[in-house]
Amino acid sequence: MDAWFMQHIDAYYLRIMVLIGINIILALGLNLVTGVTGQLSMGHAGFMSIGAYTAAILTLHYGVSFIGALIAGALMAAFFGFLIGIPTLRLEGDYLAIVTIGFAEIIRVFFLNFEPGGKAVGLYGMQQFTTFSLVMVIVIVVTLLNVKLLNSRYGRALYAIRENEIAAEACGINTTRMKVAAFTVGAFLAGLSGGLYSHYMGYIAPQDFGFMRSIEILNMVVLGGMGSIPGTIIGAAILTVLPEMLRIVADYRLLFYGALLVILMIFRPNGIMGDIRVYDLRKRWQTKEVETCSKS
């Protein structure tokens, strides 16, 4: 399968598509926390690094199979998401954002001094186990499960927490528990994408998972539309492709990147897909004529 892809698709494009896939998994995790549940987390890259390092160390030093290492990395990240979630999710908004930045920094500095993780040099020599088809399969599974979850009672309850926490609690929703659960699942997905990332790049270092990385993931969710799955996917795709496309303007790349973000946010403040609902689209499709004229 992958051999076929490698033969027929340019290696450069294939690489971008793999990175898009990894970023989609990452962003869907953060979407669950920030977009759906409304808890502003600015340390998502921290969980990604836990998954990346765990998986890499397991395959490099312990000879664990790739799939096993991938799952272990994701579970490890989920465990830390759970641990960090319990105390921090009592905080709201700006305060939560600051605390999550702090935790991500702690994780980064930990890996900077972590002997088995190669300290500042990082880890290298991981085999490229991550293939295009594997990433696509995981993306599809994760997306389907996300859709399923968000359309269920659980998902509705998470949206309710975002919309009004006090009212959600008065409706009988255990908001603390659900916020921690969302955070844990978000961290799990970040860990999963971290494991895929480390076994695609073949090299990871603490600076790959710094504050800017967290912001980049947050951008994907906000740009696509908070809480929208198609939006998050589009956001992740655009923000992965954009820096590549902007290579033509060379040194001004980041300037254009920033400007495009500003422009998009001015014209679609709720994100690209933020205020689009299937119901509205269907209604617009069905009512082809404007009714107001004929009635008078």
């Binding site: 509705r156 309850a157 309710a160 919309e163 009004n164 009212a167 959600a168 409706c171």
Partner: peptide, 21 residues
Amino acid sequence: LFNRLSVEDNVKIGTFGLEKI
């Protein structure tokens, strides 16, 4: 209210205390 959810969802969420999610 849960402003950016549909009217129907608002009422549905009202039932969530009855059965553990």
